[in-house]
Design a protein around this nucleic acid. Structure first.
Lengths: 154, 154
DNA sequence: GGAATATGGTTTCAGATGAAACTATACGGA
DNA sequence: TCCGTATAGTTTCATCTGAAACCATATTCC
């Protein structure tokens, strides 16, 4: 606060989108992480890998990395943990031995069969106060921000 | 998948709000963190502490913790770093020696005078594709989710 | 007034994480 | 064919983080 205390000078973190978005997302993520962790001993990264494999059948680490934008080390560790628990199977790709094809095992499928409804229920409880239209709009706004962010980063 | 492959069984992580929100927020936060870090050698936690002190003049660690919902250890560390760089001043509260009153120093004020416009510009570039009304709506939806989250956590 | 308890804040400890170094395989050009 | 380079994935390292233990001061109850 100096002499030229123009209104533009004051700054309220609560009105700053990156902060608000991040703190909301963090809280949601942590709450959900506790659920995965306590009920199924999974990290968030592991859950994401499982969910993508459920969605796409077969993927390589790179494809998961691209889909989730997670760091490759993080993906690598998540995959290791899941393989150790025999929730996924890892097989060198026949035409390129550097890559490994990842797939859910039967145990992995079974776990997801429990997990997905839990996750869905939790999300439903969270978004209960939003109308369908508002929910849709929220996704739409996030998508626009993502596109813009990609532009800013390039 | 399995025999009873109902539509409800399929799961697309991209349509899962916690995931989308978190991955968007993470990307935004990291991009901005790079800006604070490379230009001013500040962590996100430090920036938040500074911004709140700018906003409120004088606060204790606990108040900052409540405002930002950051972990108290994280706040403590951010404060230490800022004090070491003489960006804030820390003084035991006269009526309760456990608490410490925190304030920006002149150097801290000066730094914010650079930082705030940068942060504002960056945010403006990010939300450029949204109309004023959409921007307002986004905050409104986030606020509703925050309220609901608090309910779920209680 | 003194013991038990509560509270603000710091430190310790045990993971999680990203960046960068590294390994192994594949590819492209002389 | 052989060498340089690119790519998939792993490991190392330095840092950050939250939970819990801890310390110091304040408060409450007897």
């Amino acid at each position: 606060m100096t002499h030229d205390d123009a209104p533009a000078e004051r700054f309220d973190l609560d009105q700053f989108l990156p902060y608000r978005l991040n703190s909301l997302a963090d809280r949601i993520s942590q709450a959900l992480a506790r659920l995965y962790e306590t009920r199924h001993d999974l990290t968030v990264a592991q859950w994401r890998v499982l969910a993508w494999l459920h969605h796409k059948e077969e993927l390589t680490a790179k494809e998961i990395r691209e889909a989730t934008r997670m760091d490759k080390a993080r993906v690598s560790r998540a995959v290791q943990g899941l393989e150790a628990r025999a929730l996924i199977r890892r097989r060198p790709a026949p035409e390129d031995q550097r890559r490994h094809e990842l797939r859910l095992t039967a145990a992995g499928e079974a776990l997801l069969k429990e997990l997905i409804p839990e996750a869905r229920d939790w999300e439903a409880a969270l978004v209960a106060p939003l109308s369908i239209e508002e929910y849709r709009q929220l996704f739409e706004l996030m998508a626009r921000l993502e596109t813009q962010l990609a532009k800013l980063e390039s």
